[in-house]
Design a protein around this nucleic acid. Sequence first.
DNA 1: TTCGTAATTTAGTCTTGTCTAAAAAATAAT
DNA 2: ATTATTTTTTAGACAAGACTAAATTACGAA
Lengths: 220, 220
Amino acid sequence: MGHLSITEENYLKSILKLSEHNHTKIGTNEIAYEINISAASVSDMLKKLADKKLIIYQKYYGVKLTKTGEQYAKNLVRKHRLWEVFLTQKLQFSWDEVHDLAEQLEHVKGDDMINRLEKFLGNPKFDPHGDPIPDNKGNIVVRKQQLLIELKKGEKAVIIGVKDTAATFLQFLDSIKISLGTKFTVIGVVIYDHSMQLKLQDGRELMLSQQVCSNIYVSS
Amino acid sequence: MGHLSITEENYLKSILKLSEHNHTKIGTNEIAYEINISAASVSDMLKKLADKKLIIYQKYYGVKLTKTGEQYAKNLVRKHRLWEVFLTQKLQFSWDEVHDLAEQLEHVKGDDMINRLEKFLGNPKFDPHGDPIPDNKGNIVVRKQQLLIELKKGEKAVIIGVKDTAATFLQFLDSIKISLGTKFTVIGVVIYDHSMQLKLQDGRELMLSQQVCSNIYVSS
DNA sequence: TTCGTAATTTAGTCTTGTCTAAAAAATAAT
DNA sequence: ATTATTTTTTAGACAAGACTAAATTACGAA
């Protein structure tokens, strides 16, 4: 399992990402859309990754990561999320600014460095968006979490993550002073458009659209 | 001044490095040797860098960095050295381990990140090998420094840097417990082979070969 | 079942950055 | 000053990773 190119790493990462929601095999087009590359190019690359035993690939039938490929991809996610923690916790970046930098940092080789970084950061288990950080074996802590939208009137919960990590969304949450750890009670759900009215710990009351509520993870 | 590829950055860096010792124009072969690439490839690349106004290049006459090119190259050095400080100071790497990692980290784009990193590290002025860190304008602190080999019997000085940063050399220094900041007096110079005998601050006496003394910077 | 559309792969190019071999220019030596 | 040698550049090829256009396969609908 030598070194892969940045390009190859990006393919593995996007296949892992797609696998998480889509339990069946992943199609060429899906990958192409995910990383913004033509389907033809993806098709080429899949052959190469299959030669390297990183994916199982059968022409016209889609792909799946091998154990090796999955391990490699999870390590990339680990690196990405640890660097994100570093950028927010140590360099004071806000959660909407760290993605692109981490996207570069994750390709720096050196597992020893990452293990030391993890320790330096105090062995964090979640990144600034609430996503879990795999350990150096690829294990991921699973939390019971649900989407805010699934809560009913009267339920209490705490915000533990975001599904959408787009800068605009994160900046919006900042602007209404909502962050990970914010506690609240659902005090109303509008039948018409499924907006939700929350009462926050600090006393503020807030109305959030269905779309916003569909992109926030909570825990009770 | 958009983004350059890692390859282009490496050329600029090696041209800057060669410029420091060699005040005249730099030859194609020198660069080729420095970055371990054929002279033909270097010749190709020099044309591209000249098109981008990063170097002054005249066929058969060698190259020189433009102001823009020099700025860019110094920024790479800045990034390299700040990451080295991070790796030693925060992640507890030793000075012989940080070069290859910094070689990768220096190519991560994001000047804002580097400025924040600098501040996070406490605005260090020198890297773990004693080399100066350029500020974000490219200015470099100059110290009066000389090589240990130039000292005479009876002179007192302090070690402030190393000229050779090869891992084997650095590990040797570690093994004899010499590091930046070590204070000493020259108590003897062997005529025959120019070995030098030092008495360290802690009372130890030490004999160092001419080669070792030629690769240590000191200040009095 | 067969026909049409969508998904996927193949074929052929392009760019970047590398190489070797050969040509051209500069430099050194007689 | 004229060779000989070294340095540098040009020419032609190659691999990685991308593209478009065309061909092929799979699958849903009639």
